[in-house]
C-alpha cells in the first residue's frame, strides 16, 4: 500500500461516485474506437479516406526525418573528389566523448592540402550525437546529415566507423552468424531510398581512395 498519498484531495460529487467519470472516459474511448473503425472500414472498402491509425509501419514505411536531424556521420568530398578533411584534429579536440580517433599523414605531392587523415574513426558506441564535431570543423568536412537511423549492431567493433564507411554512409553492418553472407540491403531493403546512400562516390582508382584501416 502506498505510504505517501495525498488523502486531502477532495473529489466533487460526480467523481466521488465514480460512475459519471467512468462513463465519460468510456465514452471517449468508444468515440475513438468508432471513428477509427469507420476509417479502417473505408480502407477495407477501398474508399479513399484518412488512415484509421497514426501508426507508421516502420520497415515498410519510413518516417520523413527532419532535415536538421543529427544522426550518423559522414565525411564529405570536395568538388574534385578529394577528401575535405585535412586532419586538423579540431573535431577530435571538440568531441566531449573522446570518440574520434585521427592519425594524420602527409598528403601525396600533387595534392594542394598538406595533410590528410590516415586513420579517421568515430566510435558510435560512445558518441552522444551532440554535433560538436560538425561545429568545430573548419573545412566543413564532417556532417551528420545522412538520415540513417539504423545504427544497431551485434558487436561493439562494428560500431566504429572508419574512413571508408564515413565516405560511403550506409547502415551499420552486423557480422553475427545470423547475418553472415547477407547484404545489408537484403536485410533492410527499405534503406535503398535513404537520401545519403548514393550521396557521393569516389572516382575509381583515385589516389585519395582510402582502404580499410587495419587498426
Amino acid at each position: 500500500m502506498a505510504q505517501y498519498v495525498n488523502h486531502d484531495q477532495k473529489f466533487g460529487a460526480t467523481e466521488a461516485i465514480y460512475y459519471p467519470g467512468i462513463a465519460k472516459g468510456v465514452a471517449l474511448t468508444i468515440r475513438h474506437f468508432v471513428v477509427n473503425m469507420w476509417f479502417h472500414l473505408m480502407k477495407a472498402l477501398r474508399i479513399k479516406a484518412r488512415p484509421g491509425a497514426i501508426t507508421i509501419q516502420y520497415p515498410d514505411q519510413r518516417r520523413v526525418l527532419p532535415a536538421a536531424l543529427r544522426i550518423r556521420h559522414r565525411i564529405k568530398l570536395n568538388e574534385d573528389g578529394r577528401l575535405r578533411c585535412t586532419a586538423c584534429m579540431l573535431c577530435e579536440t571538440a568531441c566531449p566523448d573522446n570518440c574520434i580517433y585521427i592519425v594524420p599523414m602527409e598528403s601525396p605531392e600533387e595534392v594542394p592540402e598538406e595533410k590528410m587523415p590516415a586513420i579517421f574513426e568515430i566510435d558510435l558506441a560512445r558518441c552522444c550525437f551532440c554535433g560538436m564535431c560538425v561545429e568545430a570543423c573548419p573545412m566543413d568536412a564532417i556532417h551528420m546529415d545522412t538520415g540513417i537511423a539504423e545504427m544497431a549492431s551485434d558487436s561493439r567493433e562494428n560500431l566504429v566507423l572508419d574512413l571508408e564507411s564515413l565516405l560511403k554512409p550506409g547502415p551499420i553492418v552486423c557480422t553475427g552468424p545470423a547475418f553472415r553472407g547477407k547484404e545489408i540491403l537484403e536485410l533492410l531493403p527499405h534503406l535503398k531510398d535513404v537520401r545519403a546512400m548514393e550521396h557521393q562516390t569516389q572516382p575509381e582508382g583515385s589516389i585519395y581512395r582510402v582502404g580499410k584501416t587495419n587498426r
Binding site: T29, I30, H32, F33, N36, M37, H40, G52, A53, I54, T55, Q57
Partner: peptide, 10 residues
C-alpha cells in the same frame, strides 16, 4: 486489435 484501434494504433 480493439485496444489498438481505440488508441489510434493498428
Amino acid at each position: 486489435k480493439e485496444s489498438a484501434i481505440m488508441q489510434d494504433r493498428i
